[in-house]
Structure formats: C-alpha cells, structure tokens
Amino acid sequence: MKKIIMKVGLIIMALTTMVTMSACSKINNDTANDVCSALSEKYGESFVAVKIGDRFNTDSAKLYVHPADNEDILFTARINKDTGAVEDNYIEEKVNYQVEDTLKNAFELNGISAASRCMVVTRDTLSVETEEYTPQTFSEKYGFTHYTVYLVLKDGTYTAHDVLNAVKFANDTIGVKLVIAGYVFEDDGYSKCVSEIQSTPDISITMIEAISPISSFDVNVEQGMCSITEDELSEKLGRS
C-alpha cells in the first residue's frame, strides 16, 4: 500500500512539474513575443529574444535580444513592471558593436584572434534618441570621452608591437579614446571567454578573470598614442 501511495505521489509531482514548466514556458514565450513586437514597432526591424530572466522580485523582466539579421548585437530589453513599457539599449549596443567589430578586424590584420565587449560608462544612464550613429558622433552627441573595452586575445606568436599596432589602427578608425583591459588566454580559455561574451551583454571583469587568463594588460589609446610602451607590454605578455 505504501508503495502504491509513493508511486501516486511521484506521478502527481511529475505532472505538477510538467504543468508548471509548461506554464512558465508559455509566459516566457508570450513575454518574448511582446517585447520583440514592441521593439519591431519602435525600430522597424525584426528581433529575436534569446534569454529571459529577472522575472521575480524585480521591477521588470529582463531579456537578451538581438536583431534577426545580426546575432552579434546582443542587447538588454526590459518590461517595466509599473508602466508596461519596453526599455532597451539597442542604439547604444549598435554603436558598441561597431567598436568591437573594428577591434576584431584590426587584430585579424595583425594575425591575432580577438574578441571584445565594449561599453559606455557614464555617471547617469544615457537617454538615447533613435538615430544612426558612428562611435564618434555618438560620443560627441552624448558628451562622453572614451569607450571602455574588455578585450580577450588568443595566445600566439605575435608580439607587443603587433598588439599596439592593432589598437592604434582601431583607435584611428573609431576616432574616440579607447580604455582597454586586455586578457590573453590559451585555446580552451579563449573559446570559453568568447562564448561568454557572445551570450552575455553585461559581462564583467570578474567573469573574464574567473576563466584564468595567462596574462593581462591595460592600455589607453588616443590619437595614435598608447599609455604603455612596447617593452612594458612585452613584459606583461611574457614576451621579454
């Protein structure tokens, strides 16, 4: 009799879990559809939601979203619990992506595999108008002086000269000061770090350092001038 009761209890628990998961899945799908629909109306583009969180005990539900034609532009959209409005940082992340793509291409030209996460750090949250910007026009309009970049490099035979060439070229193309925290990883760590960058728009230094880089460096680049010399960077990279 006890075995029968236990089996019935397990079946009920399984059914309850399935119903709960199904209900949560429907809520998540409905939320994602609502957010993507609102974003499409706002920007005239199609969007895809890839992750949802912060539903409970917060002021809003947070989603990670990207435009349907470019999954590399990952941004955050929120439904404000009080107003029901969708709030997002799509325009800002479109500009950040230009910086990231420029850096990636600059390092590729120097034979280096690289990925980055760019951000604008300001005292107050930016209230951005829906326009098309370059990194330079965005900086000029909203009055900030630099882009902060978390840069990850795959270890290789490149030199400090190659790294500085890449950041100088990127800075010249972007036209705005870059404040870079750089990290070098062996193959597995690099792949893991790139995966984190691609899936998390609000990645932190703590998350990057937890993957155990083999070396790190800081460099500020402005108007072709770097805050670190080749010899200093060589030492940081373990090339000296």
Rank of each mutant, 00 (worst) to 15 (best):
Y147E: 13
F47V: 04
T206K: 13
D218Y: 08
V121C: 02
F185Y: 12
M6P: 01
T130A: 04
S46C: 04
D188H: 13
E108A: 14
T229S: 15
D72P: 09
F75G: 10
G53S: 05
G238F: 01
E232N: 08
Y190Q: 00
F169A: 04
A49G: 04
S204N: 11
G111T: 00
S127I: 15
E71Y: 03
L103P: 12
S113T: 14
E186A: 11
K168M: 10
F185G: 12
A77P: 06
K26S: 14
D187C: 04
T148L: 10
D69L: 08
V48C: 02
D231N: 13
V163A: 12
E222M: 07
R55G: 01
I79S: 04
G9K: 13
S195R: 03
S60P: 12
E235H: 11
R239E: 14
E93D: 14
M207N: 11
N105C: 06
E71K: 05
D218L: 02
L39N: 00
N70L: 00
S199E: 05
D101I: 03
K168D: 02
L233S: 02
E140N: 03
K94A: 04
K141A: 15
A115P: 15
Q136C: 03
T102C: 08
A85P: 02
S139L: 03
F144D: 04
S139R: 00
G189P: 02
G175M: 11
S195D: 10
S234Q: 07
V163Q: 08
N171M: 08
N29K: 05
E87M: 10
D231K: 05
